[in-house]
């Protein structure tokens, strides 16, 4: 149904591109080295959380950043993933490391079912409904027997030293992040990424031009939910205890949107920048102000960024690049209004 292949993107100088790639690889090597040799539990654990959020934000980015469908309920699928591995351990004693793919599948199926009605909605309606669905699923988790309601589900503590545990999740989420970033990179540089951007800009025109918009949105949403489900499934093992309030917390959904918007939605680099920035700011705020004030400050930051830095950090970077590359021999007429 799809014939997906890489397509050319506008390219600057090769040397500059190589330098940027080298920088990313250096960061990755640095992070891997810290994972191997670092011993500060707090830092390992914080970085693992950054990686986890970056994975979630990349997953959100697929449909939200490229396709323009702003999901404010990503945590629904995160929670479904967490409960899948939680329940599979509870009843069958299967390790979440084994069942994480199952968590991804369950989340993807939930994504397909929920996407059936919701992906027909556009703009603010989609955002609102995805948010409401989180609360509905949370209420389900609170009331079903299989989820053990507010009591929650305990998972086994791993028979490892605290440092080894932190290292393990550090590398699990770093590895997942590299994989998922590669997927997002490929999407951005393929015709399916082009179709998603077309949907974001003019969904009716995309359909008329021949994009099966409904199928594209479903497929991409399912992939995104799969990634989020896997992440949730591993998260359950990491915190070793899940209950409906924290696992389906709206804060997680909100954080992910903030990270994408601040880093630059619709670029593969955006989530890599947004996740650490937002978590850093959140940590600073957490030690200085109350959580209500925290939310207000966050909202203000987002509004300010939306107003003054469209496209987030990556938007600013690409504007700067384009300004530098702009040639004075432009005789081909003025841009259309």
């Amino acid at each position: 149904m799809f014939s997906v292949f890489l397509i050319p993107t506008s390219t600057g100088s090769r040397a500059a591109a190589a330098a940027v790639w080298a920088a990313w690889v250096a960061v990755l090597i640095g992070l891997a080295a810290y994972g191997l040799f670092g011993t500060r539990l707090f830092l390992l654990s914080t970085l693992a959380t950054v990686f986890m959020y970056a994975v979630l934000t990349q997953a959100w980015n697929l449909l939200g950043g490229y396709g323009g469908y702003l999901n404010f309920g990503l945590v629904t699928f995160f929670g479904i993933g967490a409960y899948t591995t939680g329940i599979l351990f509870q009843y069958y004693e299967l390790s979440p490391f084994l069942t994480a793919p199952v968590a991804g599948l369950v989340a993807a199926i939930a994504g397909l079912l929920i996407g059936f009605p919701t992906l027909r909605l556009r703009g603010a309606y989609f955002a609102l409904v995805t948010m409401i669905i989180t609360f509905a699923v949370q209420i389900l988790a609170l009331n079903l027997t299989i989820t053990q309601g507010a009591l929650g589900i305990y998972l086994p503590r791993l028979p490892l030293s605290p440092l080894a545990v932190e290292r393990l999740f550090y590398f699990v989420f770093l590895g997942l992040l590299v994989l998922v970033t590669a997927v997002v990179w490929a999407v951005q540089h393929s015709n399916i990424g082009g179709a998603l951007v077309a949907i974001r800009e003019d969904e009716d025109a995309a359909e008329i031009v021949g994009v099966r918009t409904v199928e594209v949105k479903w497929a991409v949403n399912a992939v995104s939910c799969f990634i989020v489900g896997v992440t949730g499934g591993l998260y359950a093992q990491r915190i070793a205890y899940i209950e409906p309030t924290g696992t389906f917390s709206f804060d997680i959904s909100l954080n992910v949107v903030l990270m994408a918007v601040i880093g630059g939605a619709g670029t593969w680099q955006g989530p890599l920048i947004g996740a650490p920035v937002v978590l850093l700011v959140a940590d600073l705020l957490r030690v200085t102000v109350t959580s209500e004030v925290n939310r207000v400050i966050f909202s203000l930051i987002v509004i300010l960024i939306a107003l003054f830095v469209p496209g987030g950090v990556m938007g600013a970077v690409s504007r700067w690049r384009r300004a530098r590359a702009a040639k004075p021999d432009d005789v081909s007429g003025s841009p259309a209004p």
């Binding site: 014939s3 995309a206 031009v209």
Partner: peptide
């Protein structure tokens, strides 16, 4: 005219090809 504004000229031409078997 309804072109996809943030895609390059070349990328615009690839959008209709997504389902071409």
């Amino acid at each position: 005219a309804r072109v996809f504004r943030t895609l390059t000229a070349m990328q615009n031409l690839f959008v209709p090809l997504l389902h071409q078997k």
